[in-house]
């Protein structure tokens, strides 16, 4: 019962703030709603027994990425609203209708698919360590070492690319 209450409360906050992010006129308010949304998603991770991911979510998303967004919003001095010019060839309404249709389709698949597939029960992976953070770290540095190194390379390339793009002249 407590789990259900926690889930529905968090889900309501997550979806509500997500809607506010995409509907608010002021971009700064939109970024701040995005922070709140990320914090509630982190709370959901705690509920799902993933405290390490929750900490990463707060540090990287709510702390790092959102500050980057705020910097760009402040640097981009909007003299006229971005919504002022409208392309006559743009059909936003059709996109909205199609998105809602895809949502209904996904919901139908999820609702009708319940019980038709037997839940797969893999044997719990025997890891030599206990604790969430230790287990994630163990997997990262043993089985997933090469993807981990590639991800670090990707971050390095992205950092250099961002610096080159944002420089005034090459």
């Amino acid at each position: 019962m407590g789990e259900a209450i926690a889930f529905y409360t968090l889900a309501a906050f997550i979806l509500g703030f997500a809607v506010l992010v995409i509907t608010t006129k002021d971009t700064v308010h939109s970024v701040l709603f995005l922070v709140l949304d990320f914090l509630f998603v982190a709370a959901l991770y705690v509920m799902l027994n993933a405290p390490f991911l929750a900490a990463i979510q707060v540090l990287v998303y709510a702390g790092g990425i959102v500050v980057l967004y705020l910097f760009v919003v402040m640097l981009v001095n909007l003299k006229r609203l971005p919504e002022a010019f409208q392309d006559p060839n743009r059909h936003g309404r059709i996109g909205l209708i199609l998105s809602v249709a895809v949502l209904l389709e996904l919901a139908a698949i999820a609702a009708l698919g319940v019980g038709s597939v037997a839940p797969v029960r893999t044997a719990a992976r025997a890891l030599p360590v206990t604790g969430n953070t230790e287990q994630v770290g163990w997997m990262l540095y043993t089985s997933y070492l090469i993807p981990f190194e590639i991800a670090s390379m990707l971050l390095l390339v992205a950092m250099i690319g961002a610096i080159v793009l944002a420089k005034r002249e090459l």
Binding site: I65, A162, I163, L165, A166
Partner: peptide, 10 residues
């Protein structure tokens, strides 16, 4: 996501 945000904002 972090890499995408950095490059995209650049």
């Amino acid at each position: 996501a972090a890499a995408e945000a950095a490059v995209g904002l650049g």
